[in-house]
Every structure is written in structure tokens, then in C-alpha cells.
Design a protein around this nucleic acid. Sequence first.
DNA 1: GTGAAAGCGCTAACAC
DNA 2: GTGTTAGCGCTTTCAC
Lengths: 341, 341
Amino acid sequence: MRVRLEDVARATGVSPKTVSRVLNEEPSVKESTRQRVLAAMEQMNYRPSPAARGLAGSRSFLVAMLYDNNDNPASTYLAEIQDGVLEACNANRYSMMVCPLRTRVQDFIRRVDALVADHHIDGVIVTPPLTDNAALLRRLNEHGVPHASISPLRRDETIGVRMDEQQAAKAMVGELVRLGHRRIAHILGIADHGASRWRLAGYKDALAEAGLPFNPDYVVQGQFTFGSGVLAARELFSRPILPTAIFAANDDMAAGVMWAANERGLKVPRDLSVCGFDDTPLATQLWPPLTTVRQPSREMGKLATEQLMEVLRGRGEGLLLQVPFTLQMRESTGAPPSDAT
Amino acid sequence: MRVRLEDVARATGVSPKTVSRVLNEEPSVKESTRQRVLAAMEQMNYRPSPAARGLAGSRSFLVAMLYDNNDNPASTYLAEIQDGVLEACNANRYSMMVCPLRTRVQDFIRRVDALVADHHIDGVIVTPPLTDNAALLRRLNEHGVPHASISPLRRDETIGVRMDEQQAAKAMVGELVRLGHRRIAHILGIADHGASRWRLAGYKDALAEAGLPFNPDYVVQGQFTFGSGVLAARELFSRPILPTAIFAANDDMAAGVMWAANERGLKVPRDLSVCGFDDTPLATQLWPPLTTVRQPSREMGKLATEQLMEVLRGRGEGLLLQVPFTLQMRESTGAPPSDAT
DNA sequence: GTGAAAGCGCTAACAC
DNA sequence: GTGTTAGCGCTTTCAC
């Protein structure tokens, strides 16, 4: 039937336990034995049974990727992250489960309990905006389940990966300034998300650095959705003096701005410059193509998972890595209209 | 520590085996015993260990969702399907793994072998275009792994879910005819995908029904991507007599067409009507919003999984269900230009 | 309709 | 550095 650990042991002339040691990369095995066992495994096409390993040992070799199913980030963003997480999991011989969480439902924490109880999850990857959900993080800690975060708000006591979004936003708005814009508006994301805070902070930084005043009339609330971008833009278009550029906190809202601009007969970028954040596929599917900040989501998923693996394999504490951003200057931004005051 | 099956047995005053029977919904248990056991489980918050069940029994209670990582369908499409699959899995107390397959890599079949060998997958959900991958299906059959397909090309010997895409395409093009269009072009998807065939067939059907000639010059190859839509549209725009409407085989390509139209100074829908297929979020994020065919992807994922469950739970053979389509008429389509010949 | 015994394939704890 | 023994929590026979 199936090739078992015992079979490998017999073929190699060692005890099952030694084969187990090799399988689990325990250091206390003589190199020559290790090689012989490894060769036998390979030759016999040995496949350890996850069920048996899970039952006997404490570990399940399972990682869960948690995401928010209410305040859903763009599915493309999550898909990219998922891809990266999966790659890192496979490389470490771990399996991945995806686990949507409805944070608005009262007992969503129960779902977490169930996840841990049912599957003995070894570790968790937390994606925004769950990264900032105190109740969730507390529960994970209570369960003693290690977790790595992607773009967490807090930088202390957290491992995973982040990007300097504030710096990125500042750079983006700085480019608008460089193009000659002086009336630059901002559309906020969902209020308590880290992404919204950082991007607003970066916007303010850039204005300050350029010596431009911060005008509250030019900052309106959005919800990260296309529709909210449309509404926010309409609101901005109702101001007595129009902004010449709009920096939306993500691409979906920027797309909404472009939609609203079209509706109002404003030509982008001639009458209005528009830029976003994230560089989703949508950015190059708009006309004109959207200037935005590129975030290496796939890579971030992978890196966060690798940090989690450091912990799971007992190799260390894991770090909060930082990845670089890139400004994607495209055709949705240009010089302000010449008649702009 | 942990509540085990044995504990439940003791608390109920029956043997472990009986509790096991209840757990596995075996019919041969007296209803009153069943209720008592169930109550005890609930009261003691009993959680069966998947590892132990997997080890002792043959089943893993794991379903893998396979998708093509080369000819990647829109990630939003897959995300929706994944959501539906997950919902059905949870409802049946199954777990789901996602499993990208690089079909272009020579030994991608090995990945399937590994999946089955490593995790003892109980069943598989196959998404397009893998649904038509003969090598994959053969291998799954060799392994004896039940699978359900989403939008398979072949309708025999397959369970899962489909939509009458040909009928949908026909209806969509029929609408263009109704609007007055007589020069209707079509952009094909990737050659051997079922979706491409059906949508082309429906296009032809509609022309035939309207008594319009089939003009090969008005049918150009695309690859389901935004970029290929742009190229295809440029090709169509090079024809001596322009089409007044373009039916693209999916939304991404339709977005490409609108991009190209913009580039060429054609106003949609005044100069050109454009429609797509799938109703991805992109459709409502374009200007003007895209007319398209709505496909209930999430529901399809759920239904396909439910059919797979029928098989896994030994309740039957499973069916190939059919779901209805909906035409989403939006602003990217309208009457042809009055000066159209 | 229900139960007793054996064992799924692996690892823990301990010994040597 | 390596082996022995016991047992993880469940399901499978097979018995009654």
C-alpha cells in the first residue's frame, strides 16, 4: 500500500524515530545517516501523512490566512497576497487555509476559536484591516497562535511586513506639487484603517513641505469603494474653487473620481489630475491610465509568511520587514490647467 | 484537556463507536440515542479532531479548489467562486485548500499527484480553463478522486454547474441587433477555452437569427486580457468600414476596446457600442458603465461544491446543474450612429 | 441497533 | 547520536 515511515526505517536500517528526526529536520542526526534516510525517502517516494503527524505531534502544518469579509479590500489585492502566502507555505511544506471573517457579526471571534480548535492551526497570516482588530489579535494571543501581519497599524510587538505608506503618499503628492498643482484634494479611506491614516499623513506632510496650506474643504471622506469615490468627487466638484488634482487613498476611489470627472465634463488630466494608491489591475484599465503607488502585494504575502515560518520552525522571533514602494506615473496626472489661480 | 469522543461516550453512557456513528451521520442509530449523543456533544463543546478522523478513516474532509495559474481568469472571478466553494465546504464541515496549477510547466500533473498523496484530498473543484484539461481530468480519475467542474466544456460524465453561455451570448448580440446594429464585431477569447467557443457560437446564432451575414473580418482573436482587447479593437478600427458595435468575449477585453476607442477619438456609445461578458466589478468602474452578461460566479462555486458533496457523502451521483444568466444593459451600448450605412 | 478490540502513521518521553 | 515504548483520537473490522 502506502509507504510509511517504518518502511523507510527498515530500508535504511535505522529506527523509525531516526527517520522522524530527519523528517523534522532535527539537528541531532549524524549527517551520513541523514543522507541515507533522505535518499531512501526519495527513492521510495515516501510521503509523510499529515494526519498522522498532526495526531501524534502537536503541529498541523497548517497556516490560515484571515481576511475581512465585510470591509473587503479589493479582491485583486487579496488574491495577490494569497498567492504569495501560498508560495511561501509550499516552500516550507505547510498547507494554507483561507478564512474569511465577518467582523460585523457579533461572534466572529467564535469563528477564530473554531478554527484553532478544529484544525489546530499552527499559525495565522492577518491581512488588513484585520491587522488592526484588537479583539482578534487578543484572541490569537490567548490561544497562543503565532501570527504575522501584512501592513499592521502598530509596529511594536508585531511581525510581518509593511510598506512606508506615509512616505509613499508624501512622495505621490510631492509629484503633484512638482507638476505645478497647488490645490490638491484628498479622498480618505475608511476611517480607522491604517492605510487611511498613513495616506492622509503623507498628504499633509507633502503639503507642509511644499509650503501649501492644509484646506479641510479639500479632504473628504470615502470608503475605499468605487462608489464612494464618485460621491466624494462630486462633493469636491461642488466647492467654489475646484482642486486641480485629487489624490484618492486607493485606486478604486480614484476610478470613481475619474468617472465623476467624466460625468461633469472634466477632462483628465487636462482639467483635473487624478492619482490613486495600490496599483491594482484597474489602474491600467482606465482611460487615461492611472498614476498610482505600486505596492508589491504578492511579495508582501510571501515575506510575511516567511517571518511566520521563522517562528513556527523555532528559528527565531520573526521581524517586521519593510518593503519599498514605487510611484507609477501614468497619464492621469499632468500639469494643472493654465487658467488655474 | 481536550474533549474526546470517548468523553462524550462516557457522558452519554454509550460506546465510543456509537458516538462515532452519530458523528458520521450513519443511519443505523436509534433516534433517541442519537439525540442524547448530539446533546452531549453540544453541551460538552465537543470538537472532533480532523487529524484523528483522517488517520483512522480514509477521508480527510478536505476539498481542493484547482485553478490555472497561467491562463489566469480574472482574479475577481476566481475570488467569487472561491467564496462560494468555501461557503458550501463550511456548511458540510469540510475544509478547502486552494491550489494554483501551472499547466504550462511540463510536470504540473505531478503537483496533482502530490496533492492527492500528501493530503488525501477527498474531492476537487475544477475551475475554467482547467475544466477542459484532459490530462488533469484523466489523472483525477486514475486517482479515483471525485471532482465537480465549473463551466466544463463537455457536458457528459461531468458533475458541477454550468451556464448556457451560448444562449447568453446570443441574447446579448440579439440586443445589439434590436438597438439597430448591423455591423457587429466579436473579439474571441483564448482559442480552446469553452467560454470562447460558446460565446462565438452565440454570436453566430444571433447574426443568423437576425439574417445578418457572418463577416470573418469582424471576428478577431483576443486572449481574455485587457491588452489583447486593445489590440483587437485597433485591428477592427483598421477595417475600411467600421463595425458599429463590438461584443467582446469578456469584460477585460471590452474595457480594452473602450480604451482603444478613446484613443481613437470614438465616443462610446455614440460612435460605437461595446459589450462584454462576466459582469466583473470592472464593468461598473468604466465610463460609461459596461453592458455585459452577468454570471452568478459565487453561486456557481457553491452549487458545484454541493454537487461534489453529494458524491462525497455517498448520497448520489451528483448532477451538472445549470444556472440562469442575466443581461446587464448599461450605458456602453446604444443605437448605432445615424450615418451608419 | 450496539459494542470490543485492533490499529491508522506518526511523535513524545524517556532511555541508552 | 540513536532506539524503545506508549499513545495521539478516531474508525475499522467483526461480533452480538
